[in-house]
Amino acid sequence: SKTSNTIRVFLPNKQRTVVNVRNGMSLHDCLMKALKVRG
């Protein structure tokens, strides 16, 4: 089974995003990807 960790990230202006960290990806990469999608 694939394991994925879901991390809630609290952003300024009362924004919130959820990042799924996959195996083999660093938290930083996942964060940058999530913020790019939002931006």
Results as ranks from 00 to 15, higher is better:
residue 1 S to H: 14
residue 1 S to N: 14
residue 1 S to R: 14
residue 1 S to A: 05
residue 1 S to Q: 15
residue 2 K to G: 15
residue 2 K to V: 04
residue 2 K to R: 11
residue 3 T to I: 13
residue 3 T to P: 15
residue 4 S to I: 10
residue 4 S to T: 15
residue 4 S to C: 11
residue 4 S to D: 13
residue 4 S to V: 07
residue 4 S to R: 15
residue 5 N to Y: 09
residue 5 N to K: 12
residue 5 N to S: 15
residue 6 T to S: 10
residue 6 T to M: 12
residue 6 T to K: 07
residue 7 I to N: 00
residue 7 I to F: 08
residue 7 I to D: 05
residue 7 I to V: 10
residue 7 I to T: 03
residue 8 R to L: 09
residue 8 R to P: 02
residue 8 R to G: 02
residue 9 V to K: 05
residue 9 V to T: 05
residue 9 V to E: 01
residue 9 V to G: 00
residue 10 F to Y: 09
residue 10 F to P: 05
residue 10 F to L: 06
residue 10 F to T: 05
residue 11 L to Q: 00
residue 12 P to T: 03
residue 12 P to A: 02
residue 12 P to Q: 02
residue 13 N to C: 08
residue 13 N to D: 10
residue 13 N to Y: 08
residue 13 N to S: 10
residue 13 N to I: 07
residue 14 K to I: 04
residue 14 K to E: 08
residue 14 K to S: 05
residue 15 Q to E: 15
residue 15 Q to P: 01
residue 15 Q to L: 02
residue 15 Q to H: 01
residue 15 Q to K: 02
residue 16 R to G: 04
residue 17 T to F: 05
residue 17 T to P: 00
residue 17 T to N: 02
residue 18 V to I: 14
residue 18 V to D: 00
residue 19 V to I: 12
residue 19 V to F: 12
residue 19 V to A: 09
residue 19 V to E: 05
residue 20 N to K: 14
residue 20 N to D: 04
residue 20 N to Y: 11
residue 20 N to E: 05
residue 20 N to S: 08
residue 20 N to H: 13
residue 20 N to I: 14
residue 21 V to F: 05
residue 21 V to I: 05
residue 21 V to L: 07
residue 21 V to A: 11
residue 21 V to M: 04
residue 22 R to C: 11
residue 22 R to D: 04
residue 22 R to G: 07
residue 22 R to P: 11
residue 22 R to H: 11
residue 23 N to S: 11
residue 23 N to K: 12
residue 23 N to D: 11
residue 24 G to D: 09
residue 24 G to C: 13
residue 25 M to R: 10
residue 25 M to E: 05
residue 25 M to V: 14
residue 26 S to G: 09
residue 26 S to R: 09
residue 26 S to T: 15
residue 26 S to D: 03
residue 26 S to H: 05
residue 27 L to V: 15
residue 27 L to Q: 00
residue 28 H to N: 09
residue 28 H to S: 09
residue 28 H to P: 01
residue 29 D to R: 05
residue 29 D to Y: 12
residue 29 D to E: 06
residue 29 D to G: 12
residue 30 C to W: 01
residue 30 C to I: 15
residue 30 C to Y: 03
residue 30 C to R: 02
residue 31 L to Q: 00
residue 31 L to T: 05
residue 31 L to M: 09
residue 31 L to A: 05
residue 31 L to R: 01
residue 32 M to T: 10
residue 32 M to I: 10
residue 32 M to R: 07
residue 32 M to L: 13
residue 32 M to S: 05
residue 33 K to Q: 02
residue 33 K to T: 02
residue 33 K to R: 10
residue 33 K to L: 05
residue 34 A to S: 11
residue 34 A to E: 03
residue 34 A to G: 09
residue 34 A to T: 03
residue 34 A to V: 02
residue 35 L to M: 12
residue 35 L to Q: 00
residue 35 L to P: 00
residue 35 L to A: 05
residue 36 K to S: 15
residue 36 K to T: 09
residue 36 K to E: 04
residue 36 K to M: 13
residue 36 K to Q: 12
residue 36 K to D: 05
residue 37 V to L: 07
residue 37 V to A: 08
residue 38 R to P: 01
residue 38 R to Q: 05
residue 38 R to L: 03
residue 38 R to G: 00
residue 38 R to Y: 05
residue 39 G to E: 04
residue 39 G to R: 07
residue 39 G to C: 14
residue 39 G to S: 13
